[in-house]
Simulated scan of single mutants.
Amino acid sequence: MKVIDFRFRPNTPEIINGIAGSNMFKAACKAIGFDARKPQPLEEIVADLEARGVELSVISGRDCETTYGSPANNASVLEFCMAYPDHFIGFWGVDPHKGMAAVRELRHSVEELGMRGASIDPYLAHIRPNEARYYPIYAACCDLNIPVFVTTAPPPQVAGAVMDYTDPRYIDIVARDFPELKIVMSHGGYPFVNEAIFTCLRNANVYMDCSEYEQAPMAEAYIQAMNTLITDKVVFASAHPFIEQADALEVYAKMPLSAEAREKIMYSNARKVLGL
């Protein structure tokens, strides 16, 4: 079966070291044993993708320089996409605190650099996704006809990050205010499982992935909804390298999904979101 991975970051040595040493994730990496992750050269990573049948992987950038002082990783996203354009699709990370400078940078990344979406992390920006500072970004996404990727579950031990910033009910408000905007909630809005499912169900423009939480408590509701209510609204994402992509694929292979749901979640729903 063909696969599109909607949340993937190549585990090159620079990326592994950058995540482990970042101001945001240093404590989280220690808590989850991230130092055991094996770095690989990029060409080897791409060979593994091909061996697993992964046709495309979305690499989402991150910019939370204002709140955490760490530089944006967008340059590496661009580098990966330029090196292997047939394998990687880039989403530009946006810091809402940078105002119109961030909007202009996003426009440049799409119109001049070939990026295919925007990526935001409200919990790292320390504001809710329906806060006014995000609205110029959403308007630009509508104008550029690109989706926005929203992280909606905070990892453990991230200083300053609270669960309230990731509540899917705020995405529901954004979806109402921007009906033309394609929104992908990453990590399934966990632990707000039912709220995430219903936000997808009631808004034609909202999708989600359940990365990292497919086997967490309450995850059976995700699986039930994938087979019934929101078969057309879920995309597969591994969250590699926090989760090994091979392990994530194995979880989905064992998941009790209908053949129709499996094909849509692993492949065709992502093509629809990406406009392919």
Score class of each variant (00 low, 15 high):
residue 259 A to T: 08
residue 254 K to R: 15
residue 216 A to I: 05
residue 160 G to N: 03
residue 270 A to Y: 00
residue 173 I to D: 12
residue 263 E to V: 09
residue 245 Q to Y: 12
residue 254 K to Y: 09
residue 240 H to C: 10
residue 258 S to T: 15
residue 230 I to W: 03
residue 263 E to R: 13
residue 161 A to V: 03
residue 255 M to F: 05
residue 188 G to L: 04
residue 249 L to T: 02
residue 170 Y to L: 05
residue 198 F to W: 14
residue 207 Y to N: 08
residue 206 V to R: 07
residue 178 F to D: 07
residue 266 M to F: 12
residue 206 V to S: 08
residue 247 D to T: 13
residue 263 E to D: 13
residue 269 N to R: 00
residue 245 Q to N: 11
residue 163 M to R: 11
residue 178 F to K: 09
residue 209 D to C: 06
residue 175 A to D: 06
residue 222 Y to F: 15
residue 264 K to E: 00
residue 235 V to P: 04
residue 172 D to K: 02
residue 215 Q to C: 12
residue 232 D to G: 07
residue 248 A to N: 04
residue 258 S to A: 07
residue 267 Y to I: 04
residue 237 A to E: 02
residue 256 P to H: 11
residue 185 M to N: 01
residue 185 M to F: 00
residue 226 M to G: 10
residue 211 S to I: 03
residue 257 L to T: 03
residue 203 N to M: 10
residue 198 F to I: 13
residue 197 I to M: 07
residue 250 E to P: 00
residue 268 S to L: 04
residue 168 P to G: 05
residue 206 V to F: 06
residue 167 D to N: 15
residue 180 E to A: 15
residue 224 Q to V: 10
residue 253 A to N: 15
residue 240 H to S: 14
residue 207 Y to G: 10
residue 212 E to I: 15
residue 241 P to T: 12
residue 171 I to Q: 00
residue 170 Y to I: 06
residue 199 T to W: 03
residue 238 S to H: 09
residue 264 K to C: 00
residue 265 I to E: 05
residue 174 V to M: 02
residue 225 A to S: 14
residue 260 E to H: 08
residue 271 R to L: 15
residue 236 F to M: 05
residue 175 A to S: 12
residue 252 Y to T: 06
residue 267 Y to N: 12
residue 266 M to H: 02
residue 256 P to L: 10
residue 178 F to V: 07
residue 238 S to A: 11
residue 190 Y to R: 03
residue 220 E to I: 13
residue 230 I to L: 10
residue 241 P to H: 11
residue 242 F to M: 13
residue 189 G to P: 03
residue 215 Q to S: 14
residue 209 D to A: 04
residue 160 G to F: 01
residue 250 E to L: 12
residue 231 T to G: 14
residue 236 F to K: 05
residue 211 S to T: 11
residue 165 Y to E: 09
residue 179 P to R: 08
residue 249 L to Y: 05
residue 244 E to Y: 13
residue 270 A to S: 09
residue 215 Q to H: 05
residue 193 V to H: 00
residue 174 V to A: 00
residue 258 S to Q: 08
residue 176 R to A: 12
residue 211 S to W: 01
residue 194 N to P: 00
residue 168 P to C: 04
